[in-house]
C-alpha cells in the first residue's frame, strides 16, 4: 500500500490523545493535553524550556508513564499495551529522533549496522538484503555510499543526525517523534535537514510530532502548531495562523520575541 492510499483510506486519526497529565510530585509536567493527529500530518509543539513539551513527547512515545489520560494509536490503547507490544511498536511503526544523535545512534557500530539494526530487530536475517536496504537509506539521507562501514563517531553533527533519521525510517514507520531535531546544528546544515524531512514527510505520508523552540523550523515543517506554557497547551491551530495571528498572551510574547534576520 502506498502512502497515498494509506492517507486516502483512513480518515481516522492515527493518534488520539485525551486529557494526558503527568506530574512530578507537586510540579506539573504536562496537564490535560488533548489532540488528534492524522496520517500525513506534522504537529509542532513549541514553548520555552520547562514548558512541558519534552515531558509530553516522552509520555506519548511511551518513555514515561502519564498519571492520567488516554493515548490511542491506530485505535489501540497505548497505555494499556504490554511493554513487549509497546517496544515492538517503537521498533516498527514508531520512530524517535533524539536531539543529540549520540542518544539515538550506536556510536561503536558502523553506519550500515546502525541502519540495519531495526531490520534485524524485526527478523531480517539476510545480510545482503539488509546491506542493500541500508545503502538505499544512506543515499536517501545523502550520505555517500562509501561511508557505510564508517562509525558515526567519524561523522559530522549534521551527518550523524541524518544517519539517525535513516536508522529510524528504515522500517517505514507511520509515526515519528522528533525532539529538537535541528537543535545544535549549523544553520546551513539545518536547512538541508529541513528539506530532507519535508520530502520524507511528503513521500512517505509520515505523521510527525516535532518538539522545538525554533519557530522558523515549525513554520517550514509543521502543518499544525501547539503552544505550551507551564505544562498546559495555551493555543493550538494552523501553524501560520498561530504564528501570524496568535491569540493567547503567551503566544504573542513568544512570536514577538523572535529576532528578525
Amino acid at each position: 500500500m502506498t502512502a497515498m492510499e494509506r492517507i486516502a483510506m483512513t480518515d481516522q486519526p492515527l493518534l488520539r490523545v485525551d486529557g494526558l497529565t503527568k506530574r512530578y510530585g507537586p510540579r506539573i509536567g504536562c496537564l490535560d493535553v488533548s489532540f488528534d493527529l492524522y496520517p500525513g500530518e506534522v504537529l509542532g509543539i513549541v514553548g520555552e524550556s520547562g514548558s512541558g513539551k519534552s515531558t509530553l513527547l516522552s509520555c506519548l512515545a511511551g518513555h514515561l508513564q502519564p498519571d492520567l489520560g488516554r493515548v490511542a494509536y491506530d485505535g489501540r490503547d497505548v497505555l494499556a499495551m504490554s511493554e513487549t507490544e509497546r517496544r515492538r511498536l517503537g521498533r516498527t511503526d514508531w520512530a524517535y529522533v533524539h536531539q543529540n544523535p549520540r542518544d539515538g545512534l550506536r556510536m561503536g557500530v558502523s553506519a550500515g549496522g546502525n541502519v540495519g539494526e531495526r531490520l534485524m530487530a524485526i527478523g531480517a536475517r539476510h545480510y545482503g538484503e539488509i546491506r542493500d536496504k541500508a545503502q538505499d537509506w544512506l543515499a536517501r539521507v545523502e550520505i555517500a555510499a562509501d561511508r557505510i562501514d564508517d562509525r558515526p563517531s567519524a561523522f559530522s553533527g549534521g551527518m550523524q543526525q541524518r544517519l539517525q533519521i535513516a536508522r529510524n525510517l528504515v522500517t517505514a514507520p507511520r509515526l515519528v517523534f522528533m525532539d529538537e531535531p535541528t537543535g545544535g546544528l549549523d544553520v546551513s546544515v539545518q536547512a538541508r535537514l529541513l528539506d530532507l524531512l519535508r520530502g520524507l514527510v511528503r513521500d512517505l505520508g509520515l505523521s510527525v510530532i516535532i518538539v522545538t523552540h525554533d519557530l522558523a523550523v515549525v513554520r517550514l515543517l509543521a502543518h499544525r502548531l501547539m503552544v505550551m506554557k507551564s505544562g498546559r497547551v495555551v493555543e493550538q491551530g494552523l501553524t501560520d495562523q498561530v504564528l501570524d495571528d496568535p491569540q493567547h498572551a503567551y503566544s504573542q510574547l513568544l512570536v514577538s520575541s523572535v529576532l528578525q534576520v
Binding site: Y38, A191, D195, L220
Partner: peptide, 26 residues
C-alpha cells in the same frame, strides 16, 4: 478545523503573497 484548511489549501485555494517563504537550499 486546521485539517480542513490544510486540505483546502492543498487542493482548492492558492495564494501568491508578496513574500517568498521557502526552505533555504531547495
Amino acid at each position: 478545523s486546521p485539517r480542513q484548511i490544510i486540505a483546502l489549501r492543498r487542493e482548492t485555494l492558492g495564494y501568491v503573497s508578496q513574500f517568498l517563504r521557502v526552505v533555504p537550499r531547495v
